[in-house]
Design a protein around this nucleic acid. Structure first.
Length: 428
RNA sequence: GGCCCCGUCGUCUAGUGGCUAGGACGCUGGGUUUUCAUCCCAGAAAUCGUGGGUCCGAUCCCCACCGGGGUCACCA
């Protein structure tokens, strides 16, 4: 039975890269009818942001990534403590009372082995005792190759902090074993610390899951890894901007994974079905929005009128339905609806410079046609107007814009009274 | 700097020891249309990072280089 997990730390909203990791982990499990587990890694109390666990749950649900099991690491502390004590007992870990260091401020350290490793202390933080000159190897299922290190390049990583909380290096491995995780799928930033995890797995005993490291998504602007701070890339934010979850998901699917048959359109169930663990990409993709916009337009067009009405939070009136029908093909984002249709709801400001030379003649004859019940299509024929010019003047007079939904249908929705009023405003 | 990952059209990517290197987005042109959009058709766009090998033959295998990315915490 395939079991995968998505293990975010509750430090904010769902990063687009995290969403992708969750999606792939979900597909990996569900393709084999396995379980997808959500595990909140809240072992750093300082960084925790209130409400983010709920936000993550809500967002995953919104995208259809439903999980079968749910865990919170801070509720499992004794498990990690016991594991660490076992490692100390087995002489694979040791207590340490050194002052914590922060590499960001202190720079690179060349001394990999901790001074406390042979002191035989019995209190303090607990660190991994990394063996000398040992080759550490695993096969990465994303990269489809063996990756290895010499343990001499690995530092004695902290397993339990002095506040008693475990670090990722311990907690995640304990949980992955305990929860029977078969495949660890995680961000590429974890690759360098994998030798630590290999040792922890080995010393803990039990079956080690397969491990795979996803590519980083790079910013199209900077070429660097997308960052929460610099780039605006939260899943929630895309939704707020008028992207459909199914569009974002479809876009994300292809940023780091591809099928052999060039297919590009997938609903979530279709993706799960087509998913193949060998389809992962090894090179870092850049994040550009053009294709996302296309996906979004595509999925908007596929919506039924009622569905679109609901997405736009519009009342189910006949008028709204008609307007939606006219604009559906023209929307790239849900947000576009507002600018596309404002003239239906409020008097447009008409810039007369946009109108053609003969606009007065055009509009006068249109008013006549309205009053006498003559179809608008008839007007240019009867008066020898150039069809395009005539309708363009009409369009601008009614909507204030050059690019609009079909003008005849729009006028129908607006009604005779309103339309006439707008025409007269301009002629007089 | 040490360690590690990566390198096919602008972008996302398919591909195999021998192909006109395929698709999609975007772009350009055309058709449909009273505008725009949709839809349809066509086109431009990748000397497969560079230089060496191996081979009858390399985008595909090997090496070097260059370039890009990541990471070096009692954060995850």
């Amino acid at each position: 039975m395939t079991r995968t997990r998505f293990a975010p730390s509750p430090t904010g909203f769902l990063h687009i890269g995290s969403l992708r990791t969750a999606l792939y982990a979900y597909a990996l499990a569900k393709h084999d009818k396995g379980d997808f587990i959500l595990r909140i890694e809240d072992t750093d109390q300082k960084r925790e942001v209130k409400g983010s666990t709920e936000a993550i749950q809500k967002t995953l649900t919104k995208f259809g990534l439903n999980y079968d099991e749910f865990y919170i690491q801070s509720e499992r502390l004794d498990l990690y403590k016991k594991a660490a004590e076992k490692l100390v007992r087995d002489n694979h870990a040791f207590y340490c009372d050194c002052k914590p260091k922060n590499a960001k401020e202190e720079g690179f350290s060349t001394d990999l082995k901790d001074p406390c490793r042979d002191k035989g202390l019995t209190t303090g933080a607990i660190k991994l005792k990394v063996p000398e000159n040992k080759v550490l190897t695993y096969r990465d299922f994303v990269h489809k190759k063996e990756i290895s290190w010499n343990s001499d390049t690995v530092y004695d990583a902290t397993l339990i902090k002095s506040d008693g909380f475990p670090t990722y290096h311990l907690a995640a491995m304990v949980d992955d074993i305990e929860m029977g995780i078969t495949h660890i799928l995680r961000g590429h930033d974890w690759l360098p610390s994998t030798p630590i995890h290999l040792l922890v797995f080995e010393y803990l005993g039990g079956i080690r899951p397969e491990i795979g490291h996803l590519t980083d998504i790079l910013s199209g602007e900077t070429g660097k890894k997308l960052s929460k701070r610099r780039d605006s890339v939260f899943a929630e934010q895309f939704i707020d901007e008028g992207y459909l979850p199914e569009a974002l998901l479809n876009f994300i699917m292809l940023l780091g994974w591809a099928p052999k048959d060039n297919r590009e359109l997938f609903t979530l169930p279709e993706f799960v079905k087509a998913f193949d663990i060998n389809g992962f990409q090894e090179a870092n993709p850049k994040f550009f929005r053009e294709k996302l916009d296309w996906f979004n337009g595509f999925y908007i067009r596929k919506l039924s009128v009622d569905e679109l009405l609901e997405k736009l939070k519009l009342d189910d009136t006949q008028k709204n339905k008609s307007i939606v029908k006219l604009t559906q093909d023209r929307m790239k984002k849900l947000f576009d609806f507002k600018s596309l249709t404002s003239f239906f709801f409020e008097e447009p400001v008409v810039d007369k410079k946009l109108l053609g030379k003969n606009y007065k003649e055009h509009l006068k004859k249109t008013v006549d046609a309205f009053e006498n019940g003559i179809p608008l299509d008839q007007v240019p024929k009867d008066n020898n107007f150039k069809v395009g010019d005539f309708f363009m003047d009409l369009r601008i007079a009614i909507t204030g814009m050059k690019f609009t939904p079909p003008i005849n249908e729009s006028i129908e929705i607006l009604g005779k009274e309103v339309s006439l009023k707008r025409l007269r405003n301009i002629i007089d």
